[in-house]
Design a protein around this nucleic acid. Sequence first.
DNA 1: GGAGATTGTTATAGACGATTACAATTTTCG
DNA 2: CGAAAATTGTAATCGTCTATAACAATCTCC
Lengths: 160, 160
Amino acid sequence: MRKAPAPYRPRVLTPIARVPGLDYGVLDELLGYSLRRAQVAMFAAFHEATRGVDITPPRFTALVVIGSNPGMSQSALGNVLGIARSGAMLLTDWFEAQGLVERRRRPNDGRAWGLHLTPKGERLAAQLRKRVLRLDLERTRALTAAERRELLRLLEKLAA
Amino acid sequence: MRKAPAPYRPRVLTPIARVPGLDYGVLDELLGYSLRRAQVAMFAAFHEATRGVDITPPRFTALVVIGSNPGMSQSALGNVLGIARSGAMLLTDWFEAQGLVERRRRPNDGRAWGLHLTPKGERLAAQLRKRVLRLDLERTRALTAAERRELLRLLEKLAA
DNA sequence: GGAGATTGTTATAGACGATTACAATTTTCG
DNA sequence: CGAAAATTGTAATCGTCTATAACAATCTCC
């Protein structure tokens, strides 16, 4: 158990509306700006769904991945999140201070910790998985099921 | 002309690779994580294309929008970028210090500035539009033209 | 057994954006 | 018209997030 970082103050990221009467030029043909707008929109919904739970997208991702991969290392966590080891450590510190994650020594590797959800962490992860999945579907109800699948496929292709 | 913020040190955001042998659980069905991975991938390409030019995605967006809408206000710029007025001001300060953007008083509104590209700003904007569009197409060459159009459409639908 | 790689840790620094408060100006409306 | 409310830019401050670099402990690979 280590020091807990400062309490979380939610960032109110409201969706980026199109400014009427403005010419967006080449931005309309580029993926970068569209991706950001979509991401902000999804984040706003995420924030809505996790109201009062003190959870951010990276924290959610971490909970899910640790839950699905008990004993994974902090470095692997950092790789999943796309952040440096030091960041993964601060994140783990926070989880430990909240009683959501445990560090356990690995028998065959004295360097790395194995990360495990506590029972409290399991409960929270289960609850959030449900809530976030529901919000995600709600937010994307403008899309048909086929469109949603297609979007996921194209994004995956882009990131690969 | 105001004080220039600290010089830009590029963040090396390498694409987030999938960690082999790891179970991503519900993340594979959620749009949030996919969006982030795709955005990071596009940012890495963007960074590659703007090498040596000291430009970030928000700066690029600002250049394009100011170029397409001469005389627009700082507040409108903030709205396009999804940031607060204070942030738009710092951004404008930086542009002004670089000699890329000019603030001009508006005749019919003594509160707001009108933002205009300088000739130098015009040249940079034109060059970057070309380079970024090229990189965007290159990065998305894993997609067919139809897929790319469809992706843009779906993202737009999501952000709306 | 030793060189090099990996892991966690700590400390430091920078970029970014929010918030708040304020002054000047414009708009709204009684 | 004239006062209240809204808008715009500005300044100061704060918090969050992440990277970088250096270090020790441990493991891997010849």
